[in-house]
Amino acid sequence: MAGAGALKAEASGGMPPLLRRLLQVVPVLFGIATLNFLILQLAPGDVVDVLAGEAGAATPETMAELRRSFGLDQPVWLQYLRYLGQLASLDLGHSYRLNLPVRELILTRLPPTLLLMVSALLLAILLGSLAGILSARRVGGWLDTVVSGVTLLSYAVPTFWLGLMAIVLFSARLGWLPSGGMLTIGAGHSGWALLRDIAAHLVLPAVTLSTFYLAVYARLVRSAMLELHGADFIRTARAKGAGEWRITINHAFRNALLPMVTMAGYQAASLLSGAVLVETVFSWPGLGRLAYEAIRTRDLNLLLGILFFSSILVVIVNIAIDRLYGLVDPRVAPGASRA
């Protein structure tokens, strides 16, 4: 957030855009691996300390042997090179704590996180646009004041706190919605019943998370619309007798799409951050919770795997958005890049 400055599109040309983009990604991924590797090296305690458990049962000899078998006894630079080599061959290794392949762990947790994020984002875009259009129709009117008040407020509310309060009200007091999880486990629903079950579980976390993004879209749409109010083609359309809503949807809204798409791409990076908190509050079985546990237990392979994976995801989203630019606004060359 607070990223107004990051939105400026930077034009640069040269190589074929897709290739250039992919090449740009390599140092970033390399940097991420290095950064996290270093931080976790500085951390007190490693996965063997976690495995030693509560009783502190393992003797120093056993712990030394375990470190040897995980390669933790080797010099840091060697561990680092080994890890980079692994990554280069797209092998994420296995979690020493969970005794499962990292790739498998990530792939089972990815769909819930994506479902939550995409619904939250769609909800934010939908509601945000609506709010933006409504408030732009009469600047300074009561609707505008109310909408801008609500959006400012929603921007100030911490998502985790809103989640807690929503649980108190809608689950505990009113009993309308389940307080956590993605579906009723063991209920064996299928087809429509399953969809309905998931939807009921999705409502609170998705709405909670969307408030964080909502304000941004409302403002983007509002200002894009205001900019266009006096534009010639709008006046022409009006003169032709087009209805107010049609003008709004067809012309003004289309022009607001560009900054909105930009914003969506920018927010892809904050995907995992938002997930940690909301997934914790709502016991949502996603990547964010997995990442948090990996930190607590010094599960280096798993944590690096998740960060690596999420970075690739961010990059893919951004490339996709570069493509989208061309569709939304043919004037923008697909090579224009944002961070």
Binding site: I32, I39, A269, L272, G274, V276, S311
Partner: peptide, 21 residues
């Protein structure tokens, strides 16, 4: 590139790592 790196890493996760560690 450094800035980009910090914008690609999920910032809150990074903060959690730093504080937890």
């Amino acid at each position: 590139r450094l800035t980009e790196l910090f914008q690609t890493v999920p910032t809150f996760v990074l903060a959690v790592v730093l504080v937890a560690v």
